[in-house]
Computed example of a mutant assay.
Amino acid sequence: MSNNIKLIKEEKFCKLYWKSKELYNLILEYDFGAGISLPSRFTEQLCRQLYNLKKYEVKDNTKDTNKKAFDAVDEHGNNIEIKATTSKSSSTTISTEEFDLLYWMRFSLDTDELFIYSITGEEIRSNSEYQEIIKDPRNNITLKKFLTDKHLIDVYKFNTI
């Protein structure tokens, strides 16, 4: 990972981030909870843009709505899952589909930093913690149990608007 903090400049991403931060602060101020979840379309679009990923398209013409559409695909054809969290626990649901790579976007609303981690699907599936998780139909996973500093690929900050 580079020690350089990169800057996200595109207005639509910056505007939504800063409005979300404003909402987050109100939630804390009025004791309405511990945080917020960012919209998946926002986080997935941002990740695809930052890493030049393409939106995943189901490759057959069947209208099977149960068929998994991954969040993205890279230039090598790897199926990508994108997860984003704003809490320190970093708990989220995860697909048991055979994705190749997972990009985890950990938004720190306290420091206005975005930490992006990458881990292979094989690393996750071979972890004994994952074997316990897939027994639960809701498949809730705490990503920080799977990722280390070696998985951190970039740190970003949002441009102020």
Rank of each mutant, 00 (worst) to 15 (best):
N3L: 10
L7E: 07
L7A: 03
E11S: 14
E11Q: 08
C14S: 05
C14L: 10
L16F: 15
K19S: 12
K19H: 05
S20M: 15
E22T: 11
L23K: 11
L23T: 10
I27P: 09
L28P: 03
E29Q: 15
G33K: 05
S37Y: 13
P39S: 09
P39A: 13
R41G: 09
T43N: 14
C47P: 02
R48V: 08
N52E: 08
K54G: 12
K54R: 10
K54D: 14
K59R: 11
N61M: 10
N61D: 14
T65A: 04
K67R: 13
K67Y: 04
K68F: 13
A69M: 13
A72H: 08
D74E: 01
E75L: 15
I82Q: 02
A84G: 15
A84T: 06
T85F: 05
S91H: 05
T93Y: 02
I94H: 02
T96Y: 08
E97N: 08
E97Y: 06
E98H: 14
L101P: 00
W104F: 01
W104V: 02
S108I: 01
L109V: 10
T111C: 12
G121Q: 01
E122I: 13
E123D: 12
I124K: 00
R125Y: 02
R125V: 01
N127H: 15
N127E: 12
N127L: 09
E129P: 00
Q131G: 04
I134A: 14
P137T: 05
K144G: 09
K145R: 09
L147R: 04
L147N: 08
L152T: 10
D154C: 10
V155E: 02
F158P: 01
F158H: 03
F158Q: 01
N159L: 09
N159M: 07
T160C: 04
